[in-house]
Write a protein that binds this DNA or RNA. Sequence first.
DNA 1: ATGAAAGCGCTAACAC
DNA 2: GTGTTAGCGCTTTCAT
Lengths: 340, 340
Amino acid sequence: MRKGIIKESPRLEDVAKRAGVSLSTASKALHDNPRVSAKTRQLVQRIAHEMSYTPNALAQSLINGMSGTVGLVTSDMSGRFCTQIMMGAENVLGSKSISVLLTNARNDPTLEAMHIRKLLSLRVDGLILMGRETDPRPSLSEDIPVPVVYAYAPSENPQDASVTCDNVDAGRMAVGHLLSCGRRRIAIIGGDPSFSAATDRTQGSLDALDEAGLEPVGPIRYGTWDGSWGRGATRLLLDDPDLDFDAIICQNDQIARGCIDVLKERGLKVPDDVAVIGHDNWKEIVDVARPTLTDLDNRAVDIGRRAAEMLIDAINGHPHHGVELLKCKLIQRESTVPLE
Amino acid sequence: MRKGIIKESPRLEDVAKRAGVSLSTASKALHDNPRVSAKTRQLVQRIAHEMSYTPNALAQSLINGMSGTVGLVTSDMSGRFCTQIMMGAENVLGSKSISVLLTNARNDPTLEAMHIRKLLSLRVDGLILMGRETDPRPSLSEDIPVPVVYAYAPSENPQDASVTCDNVDAGRMAVGHLLSCGRRRIAIIGGDPSFSAATDRTQGSLDALDEAGLEPVGPIRYGTWDGSWGRGATRLLLDDPDLDFDAIICQNDQIARGCIDVLKERGLKVPDDVAVIGHDNWKEIVDVARPTLTDLDNRAVDIGRRAAEMLIDAINGHPHHGVELLKCKLIQRESTVPLE
DNA sequence: ATGAAAGCGCTAACAC
DNA sequence: GTGTTAGCGCTTTCAT
């Protein structure tokens, strides 16, 4: 007898019987196999529709060895990077009608391993492992019998396929933009120095300054990624009488927000007196800030999208290797408008 | 011959052969069936582990008629409500080791229907349909052979199971809190009036004011959910010489943020001159605002959690009916601190 | 305690 | 064109 707690959906056999044909004919009919007469095909399809027959993908997968699903393992569903990466990935996967199994590993390697096991038992065709930082993470690919793509947090193993954003280049772009806005005296407020996102951005900024024959104004201080650090660091800059700057690069948007608040409190005009540029393009901050914040977007959605594409390639037998860096995108807003 | 493009994972048969036992004995051994000797059981389990055997959940599901997966259909992955609901749902589902299939319907009913079809063919044991507003939506449960729970956007059909937040009560609580902070002259800035979230909150606030023998100060204006409306509406209040208020209820955080900005621009102190309370507890706004924003949290994560619980109940044969309203939670921050 | 065999829902040879 | 049959990987009677 058939099991299942809930209502039973009709099986192909039920459709076949009603249509008065054999199981295999019904199957062929539904697959538009040319070896069934147009008549039977239409009949079967009509009946299948009437019975709202839905093929059992489990049975189908069991046969062809592919499930048509991929696993997404996030390390942090509350952060918005992972969310955006998910969106991007779901977008391309969904359009290829690949279903997405989502799990949240909460940045816990043990939990991550458990989830991966579960996903493997569901026979996902591939896996996207999403980190919440751009710092490299240990590879797991050796223990995983399906293709894996690392998103945002690249794998330490250069053989693996990873996608993340190009923070060094973002640092360069920040400087480049400020220079093209006519600023020459640029200060930098760093983020949390334990993140490569911070040190990479600094690196890029310093390179670009150097190429322009410039040095940053004042020391590059590091702190945390939040607004209060932005406030504090800005005060430190303002309180140093030796410092004279007309632009500040803030290594994320919370810092930038705090920075702008302090500048305004001190009676300085943004961007007239000091231009401010942020990183991460966090809509809720960037659009609400007055002036709105010019920003570098790390295109998390595109990272997700690209990860999905790379995964699909790998599933189709064309694996990628190494870390693919996506260029960040400059979003010009009010906080850096060129001096008139 | 066995198929599949990628590496093959070992089958139970492979394990059985290596252990020198039959297929069925191996199966029993792995399931701790007491009818196999401790010796064979250990042997089989060890070998299974060595070969890193992972049972094929597809095959298992095919047999027992349940897939151990549920479908999550979001209407909007970019908004943070759906994201939080997802988190909550994944949380309880994951803990019951039910896997989550995520799809994004982009608020498009056609796309939603397609995704549901796909999920049904994957034989999900249940479905959570997440809306991005609290306005009721058409029911689909009749066409779906598995249990469905509607989250955030409740179903129009009272027979269905829905969870969302209690906006009316949230409106009451906003007033209640301000009253208990000693405010009596309360103004209200509405959100987008086409949302029940706006009208419900107003309703609750008016009820609570009425019970206290009060009326709102000035007209209740509606606009959009964004910061510029908050700014504009606040100016309208301030520019009316007949109006005298010591508190403003803003129906979301963007509005509140704009409101505070204007109050400060006009030289008013928050909360000393005017207390401000927001709705939705949008961390990135609420914590960054100066002063930090007292707020009503609609507990989207808990909505997701509850939806998952209700779904599990239904899957286990104990369906829920009707709309379950979760009380919002007051988050006291600086913007309403009682006058000294 | 162990194994053989039937079957979950479906597809893909292979006959007719 | 259509039907019969043998699996996909696993669980589960039912014999032994």
